[in-house]
Simulated scan of single mutants.
Amino acid sequence: MAENQGEVKLLGVGESPFVCRVVIALKLKGIEYEFIEENLGNKSDLLLKYNPIHKKVPVLVHNEKPVSESLVIVEYIDEAFKGNPILPTEPYQRALARFWSKFIDEKIVPAVRKAVFTLDEVEREKGIEESLEALQFLENELKSKFFGGDEIGFLDIAATIIAYWVPIFQEVTGLQIFTSDKFPKLYNWSQELINHPIIKESLPPREPLLAFFKGRIEALSASK
């Protein structure tokens, strides 16, 4: 346990890439925490108490103080606990890491969602196009083994959804958005990332995730 870490709880669901970001940050820092599994179909009083505004996971509770939104939580963890810095120390690099992480959540995630979970063919094609365009920007931004250099950093954590979840979406739907042919640098980065010991132990098991998203796609198709 990290020295003087206090009481740390994480409210989340196992299949969420946003919850996984927080798990990675906690493990990188060596923080012990209690994981409280939420049922988003029947939200607990605890979740409504700690995140009354968005009523969403993840929520980190440190000494009874709640912090919400995955990227905000990762920054909080970096500042609240010593050792293994996650954000770059140089101000411009910090700003870039924040910018590209926001880009993932505001551009890549919505585009991929549209491509994977939209039944309308025109909208789906639009989602695929937007995903490819956005991923190309990220491909051009990758200059080393990880976005954080030789070590995993803030942007790598933010981009775990691309490395691990997008290939699962592809397997479920048959889409080919993120491939080694289209994005060689990003693809190599994704393999390095998901095979890193700390990331590996932080990721939810693949088979249940596949089954979960297969179920979601089938339910969508049935509601057509």
Rank of each mutant, 00 (worst) to 15 (best):
E38G: 07
Q176S: 15
V116I: 13
Y164I: 02
Q191T: 13
K55W: 00
I104Q: 09
F117R: 01
V57S: 03
V74G: 10
S190Y: 00
L193H: 06
Y164D: 13
K102E: 13
S68C: 15
R124E: 13
N4E: 15
V74E: 11
E69R: 04
Q176C: 01
Y76L: 10
N42P: 06
F183D: 04
H196I: 02
M1Q: 12
A25F: 09
P91D: 11
I128R: 11
S190K: 05
P167N: 12
I128G: 03
P66K: 08
L40D: 11
K114H: 00
G174E: 06
S44Y: 02
W100P: 04
E3M: 14
S202N: 07
E207K: 14
V8C: 03
F137M: 10
F137Y: 14
A134T: 10
S131I: 07
P167E: 10
E32F: 01
L209A: 08
L87Q: 10
E201C: 08
E141Q: 15
A25D: 09
N51T: 10
I152N: 10
Y164T: 04
V109E: 04
V22S: 09
L46T: 11
E64C: 02
E7N: 14
R124M: 12
N63Q: 02
G127H: 06
S44C: 10
P204K: 05
G12H: 06
I104A: 06
R21G: 01
P197N: 09
F117W: 13
S180C: 05
T118N: 14
E141C: 04
L46S: 00
